[in-house]
Design a protein around this nucleic acid. Structure first.
Lengths: 333, 333
DNA sequence: CTGTTAGCGCCTTCAC
DNA sequence: GTGAAGGCGCTAACAG
């Protein structure tokens, strides 16, 4: 059994209240007694019990993070930074994933509710019931949604302006003479996905070109889907000259198909989050580089502000910008 | 303020003890009073306070996971499965990373100590002080080390038999006529890394071939290092025909260099954890596919057994086997 | 079966 | 500056 504050007090010949004061630092403790306390702590290897403290203060020093899955490089990069930042601020990160079972989000959120000081939430598919759930939860603990919108709920959001990046890429493609540009989109129901798709359509509209809707495929971010959709696209549009993919694993699937069908050399690829592939596949791939670290930083800072009861600007909607890399690889081949 | 058990009891016109019994299920509660309790719970949106419960029972229903970083696909795959398994068993996962700062391991372990029922630990560089730390900690909570050995400490281990996979790959290369086989190894100080390197040397010895030590490079698993080391190898050994890399990011770096120097077509590559690249780079890459899911399952099961005070076979050292894929891509080119 | 009670380890007044 | 005492919300005897 680990030592308690009582043990420390006894060993130091003091009362438990004084030892508590020593730790909190709010009430001064005399030099001499401090020494005695320190000696006792050392001897007993005493460590404050964070659970007991939480019960009393109602502060967990823990932030919950709910993500749709761990397969996604984007997610992992972001939570990695989050963990680092939180740690440096004295918080730890309780990650839970719904592992693609979107209907589990509510249960997971409620699970976190009783265990953390705030929830960083990357939404998957939103249902009315989930909306109510988030709405209820955010009345007890701050919720900061990231990467994706919880439609219809008043809570802080940190988003990436995907539209700008997508539009830039598609417009560039069009300028360089591409006309048949395939689109591997995300699921229809997800806000971010719709936003990216809207940007794709918009780029065509602005360029005064007609858009062939059969070039758009809706996916689920898996590699397998990437394979299937890309294959279908190539069959329906053998003259496709470029392909935009909004998720890393779908991009991997598409690259696989392009390679095996020999279409690789005549189809330009732009993929989200594909920086790992930079330099290792040819022809060179273009990709959208998202502000992973900034996303984490902004979300964590906002969360800590909310926890500190600073409600300035609530509900905030911060929008970060993504960079698009290797635009020069988009020439018609 | 959230409702407490007292509120529920009051609203249901019962004592708090009865409500507690209702939740624990250990003592039966009459049909009728159960109804009343359920109604009160609903009205108040009551939820058990896990913190108070922990204070009393000393069970956190939380497992700590300490990893060296999140950059590694291996790590992420394993913890993803761990999270899923733990969740299904009613536990959550508190992940902390030392973000490559090996000296932080002790602090992180101690941090977890007071907050979890057990620690799943993927060790980085071990020091004598860290050994003592782990030894102390495991007297309070079960520690299961995975992927890497905590030398000199009596604790459960779940490992991957890297030696077999490496030896198989190198032997195959030798059989197919390769003689100059570069090796991008991990850090010298790490057990797993030494084990893989030993297997590499062993394969040469068994084949009765002399080994040129200048073909071995020690790295830190980063892409940058992969680039640097691969470049050096190519300079020192322009006639190198194969390259073995023990980490995914190092492999990416190596592939980058092989591509830009044009050596790609004459150097066979075998990389750890590189399954993502299957089908998207040419020539085809061979890779070691580790038992990610099994690793997670075995470690979690062992942990739960230990938590349940089942000390059978302690200290256990489970060794899983890795598969090597695409051996056919190793022909001398 | 139900209610009462004594803590779990700590924080926080409030006297002294 | 220090100590005593009452709780934070829950569990686990125990008495009835």
């Amino acid at each position: 059994m680990a030592a308690t504050m009582k043990d420390v007090a006894a060993l130091a010949g003091l009362s438990i209240g004084t030892v508590s004061n020593y730790f909190s630092g709010k009430v001064a403790v005399s030099e001499e007694k401090s020494r005695r306390i320190e000696k006792a702590i050392e001897q007993l290897h005493y460590q404050l019990n964070p659970v007991a403290r939480t019960l009393k203060t109602n502060q967990h020093h823990m932030i919950g993070v709910l993500i749709p899955d761990f397969q996604n490089v984007y997610v992992v990069r972001v939570i990695s930074y989050m963990e680092e930042l939180l740690q440096s601020r004295g918080y730890s990160m309780l990650v839970v994933s719904c592992h693609h079972r979107d209907e589990q989000q509510e249960e997971r959120l409620r699970y976190l509710l009783a265990r953390v000081d705030g929830i960083l939430y990357m939404p998957a598919r939103i249902t009315p019931s989930l909306q109510r759930c988030v709405e209820t939860i955010r009345q007890t603990v701050p919720v900061v949604a990231f990467n994706e919108v919880v439609e219809g709920v008043e809570c802080d959001h940190v988003l990436v302006d995907s539209a700008a990046a997508v539009e830039k890429a598609i417009t560039t493609l069009i300028e360089k003479g591409h006309r048949k540009i395939g689109m591997l989109a995300g699921p229809r129901e997800v806000y971010t996905s719709r936003q990216r798709l809207a940007a794709y359509r918009n780029a065509f509209r602005e360029s005064g070109l007609a858009l062939d809707e059969s070039l758009v495929m809706f996916g689920d971010y898996s590699r397998r889907t990437g394979v299937r959709q890309c294959r279908e696209l190539l069959e329906a549009h053998p003259d496709m000259t470029a392909l935009f993919s909004v998720g890393y694993r779908m991009t991997l699937g598409a690259l696989d198909v392009l390679g095996t069908t020999g279409a690789k050399d005549r189809v330009c690829v732009v993929g989200y989050d594909a920086s790992d592939l930079e330099g290792i596949i040819s022809p060179k791939i273009s990709y959208v580089y998202q502000p992973y670290e900034e996303m984490a930083r902004v979300a964590v800072e906002l969360m800590l502000r909310r926890i500190a009861k600073d409600m300035d600007g609530f509900p905030e909607a911060v929008e970060l910008t993504a960079r698009i890399c290797n635009l020069d690889a988009l020439a018609l081949r």
